[in-house]
């Protein structure tokens, strides 16, 4: 089993890259989508709605296959597998992230908006100094779950030629036929990566805490 380790760890590195890249894409996409969703302009609201429903309503694997097999036929160029995977998994996560952000932002009480307006805050000050700091503690725990889901979803990238843990495990399985060892090892590596990611998110959560009263 030891001789499998280097190849699996190389795969783990790629899995890490895909996950990290997808998380970045998801963060940008969900921020944009939620800003559009919460804007008062319907012209911005509905494209964001379509994006969210489209990616939440279909399956990540179908999205990935579609981008890998069907999209290049309409695109003038063929993006590399890893870029395709990062963008698709990122957009997929972003659709879920947008709903998390929206729920948290809308749960900031109206009184806080009133107070910010009464103090004559500009729209930006209101968003960044009043609304978001209070939404953060509500955003982080579900975001941590989403990021772990994205780590697990990154395994799908192995099905479209990205040389991640899954891809390398398949190669090892075919060459060694030691099925239990190969996939058992893969499961353990994913598990450890998930624990690390969860621990990191919990650290972040702890740093974002402030004493919240029942009614301020």
């Amino acid at each position: 089993m030891l001789h499998m380790l280097p190849m699996m760890l190389r795969g783990a590195l790629v899995t890490g890259e895909v996950t990290a890249g997808a998380i970045v894409v998801a963060s940008v996409a969900s921020s944009c989508a939620v800003a559009m969703r919460l804007s008062t302009l319907t012209a911005l609201d509905w494209p964001a709605r379509v994006y969210i429903e489209l990616f939440r309503g279909t399956s990540a694997l179908i999205q990935l296959f579609w981008a890998f097999y069907a999209l290049p036929l309409v695109l003038p160029f063929r993006p590399s597998p890893i870029i395709t995977a990062i963008v698709v998994l990122g957009l997929n996560g972003g659709a879920y992230g947008a709903e998390i952000l929206r729920g948290a932002i809308l749960s900031v009480p109206r009184g806080q908006h009133d107070a910010a307006t009464a103090l004559n805050f500009s729209a930006t000050t209101k968003v960044f100094r009043v609304v978001l700091p209070q939404a953060w503690p509500l955003i982080l725990p579900p975001m941590a779950n989403l990021f772990i889901d994205m780590l697990k979803n990154s395994a799908l990238a192995g099905l479209v030629q990205v040389t991640d843990i899954t891809f390398n495990a398949q190669i090892l399985q075919e060459s060694t036929l030691r099925n239990a060892e190969v996939y058992g090892l893969a499961l353990v590596i994913y598990f450890i990566m998930a624990l690390v990611l969860a621990g990191f998110m919990r650290l972040l959560e702890r740093r974002m805490k402030f004493p919240v009263g029942a009614r301020i």
Partner: peptide, 16 residues
């Protein structure tokens, strides 16, 4: 708006 200030029933302090 800058000419006016307001105090609310439920205080609306910023908890963070």
């Amino acid at each position: 708006r800058g000419k006016v200030g307001m105090v609310f029933q439920h205080f609306n302090l910023f908890p963070h």
